[in-house]
């Protein structure tokens, strides 16, 4: 049994055998939900879902349409698009976080899910880091240098900020590759539409 704190993976796949295969690979470490088409996928999607494995070619709602609705709902989940062929578009400019070409091997699937979860971790750490930096700046603008030097609260804050900096630099290899970089920025917001 997977414990209830395990990350949630939603598989949206119209071929039951394929979905069941993914489930077998993932069930040990993750809570898995399975949906047979786009509509069911959207029904089973909520704030608890961390990663969506989304088949691009499905009868009914296509993967692209499902992706669009997922983004509209502004859920924090990561989406890996599963395609039959290598996509010929620029992955950086699409709204998903990773893609997998069929047939998928088990290591490949697990690696991708782990990578996407790590990106979510990075976003959470960055949010926490920013909140602490705001606090630090508030103290720095309100108090004199001498007051800060004596403040326990300030010293503790500085330590926590330094710890978070370390954690951030160790997550995703410190934003090592381009796809990590772009998705980290996408997550910050500041896109044209918002």
């Amino acid at each position: 049994m997977t414990d209830s704190a395990a990350p949630v993976v939603l598989i949206v796949e119209d071929e039951p055998d394929v979905a069941e295969t993914y489930n077998l690979w993932l069930a040990e470490d993750y809570q898995v939900r399975i949906a047979g088409d786009g509509d069911e996928g959207l029904d089973k999607l909520d704030a608890e879902v961390d990663v969506v494995l989304l088949d691009r070619m499905m009868p009914g709602l296509s993967g692209d349409e499902v992706l669009e609705r997922i983004r509209e709902r502004e859920l924090g989940c990561r989406v890996a698009m599963v395609t039959a062929v290598e996509p010929d578009f620029d992955i950086l400019e699409m709204g998903f976080d990773a893609y997998l070409s069929k047939p998928i091997r088990s290591e490949e699937l697990i690696e991708t899910v782990e990578k996407l979860l790590e990106r979510s971790t990075y976003d959470r750490l960055l949010q926490k880091y920013y909140a602490l930096v705001e606090k630090q700046a508030t103290l720095e603008t309100a108090k004199s240098g001498a007051e800060l030097a004596e403040s326990n609260e300030y010293a503790q804050l500085q330590n926590r900020i330094a710890d978070l900096q370390d954690e951030l630099s160790q997550t995703m290899g410190g934003v090592e590759d381009d796809a990590d970089f772009i998705t980290a920025i996408q997550q910050i917001g500041g896109s044209e539409d918002t």
């Binding site: 960055l126 880091y129 920013y130 930096v133 951030l168 630099s169 290899g173 410190g174 934003v175 090592e176 590759d177 970089f181 980290a184 920025i185 910050i188 500041g190």
Partner: peptide, 14 residues
């Protein structure tokens, strides 16, 4: 902007 600068700095570092 703060988050953007942090992420971009990390990318430049890499």
């Amino acid at each position: 902007v703060f988050k953007f600068c942090h992420v971009l700095s990390s990318r430049l570092d890499a």
